[in-house]
């Protein structure tokens, strides 16, 4: 066990954890989207989990730093908030959702983050991003809604873990056109295999992946 100080409060946490995990398991919320515990290397792509660590010149993504004894961490400085707010607004500029039509269990992850940061769900003053992507894609037994997707990559990762390094889900295309795609291997009973797993659907924070049978969410 090591001792760290978060926002002036001393807490005892297990060694080998990331700062993000340590804070979350002690009831200190740090916004995050792409973090998954079993990932070998943190993705650090959502840019939401910034914290300030004493002795470091600039805020760092807390999912990339392991706890050390005596670490002094602040999660609520203006600089941290500023970085988190701009990252959040960039995500929201490509996620034209409305609380009213959103099919996720409310409050969804994005709403929680917005509330924590004290901002709305609109990307203002940033513009809404016009993306050349389809409204909905048929993955066979499930639907994928590219506009709901924030490309956190959790589904691609869990699919890789579930299939021993051979995922069925992948990122296709690039840049603003990036989408999650589904491509099966030959001779597989994909539907039976996937129906017994559903890890991707369960881990999606924005209900971008939805079982076809789930009518409430496919509307």
């Amino acid at each position: 066990m090591v001792q760290i100080i978060v926002n002036g409060k001393s807490i005892e946490v297990e060694e080998g954890q990331t700062v993000l995990e340590a804070c979350l398991s002690n009831g200190i919320f740090i916004p995050n989207l792409c973090f998954l515990k079993d990932r070998e290397h943190p993705h650090a792509s959502c840019r939401l989990c910034f914290v300030e660590i004493e002795g470091r010149p600039a805020p760092v993504p807390s999912c990339t730093v392991n706890v050390e004894d005596g670490m002094v961490i602040r999660t609520d400085t203006p600089e941290v908030k500023r970085l988190q707010k701009s990252a959040f607004k960039l995500i929201m500029s490509g996620h034209p959702c409305h609380a009213k039509t959103c099919p996720t269990e409310k409050p969804c992850t994005l709403m929680k983050i917005a509330k924590h940061l004290g901002v709305g769900l609109s990307p203002k003053p940033l513009e809404k991003l016009e993306r050349d992507i389809p409204e909905v894609v048929d993955f066979g037994f499930m639907f994928y809604f590219p506009y709901r997707c924030v490309l956190c990559g959790r589904c691609v990762h869990v699919c890789r873990t579930q299939n021993e390094g051979k995922p069925l889900l992948t990122f296709a295309r690039r840049g603003f056109d990036t989408m999650v795609a589904f491509f099966s291997d030959p001779g597989e009973n994909v539907e039976a295999k996937c129906r017994s797993c559903l890890a991707c659907i369960n881990i999606c924070p924005t209900a971008a992946l939805v079982l076809k049978a789930d009518e409430r969410k496919t509307a």
Binding site: P167, F171, A172, D185
Partner: peptide
Amino acid sequence: VAKYLDLSSSEVYGVATF
């Protein structure tokens, strides 16, 4: 191609579409 290189088809597809 995926079979030959022992990758998943979806990975090959992901790389190709990039």
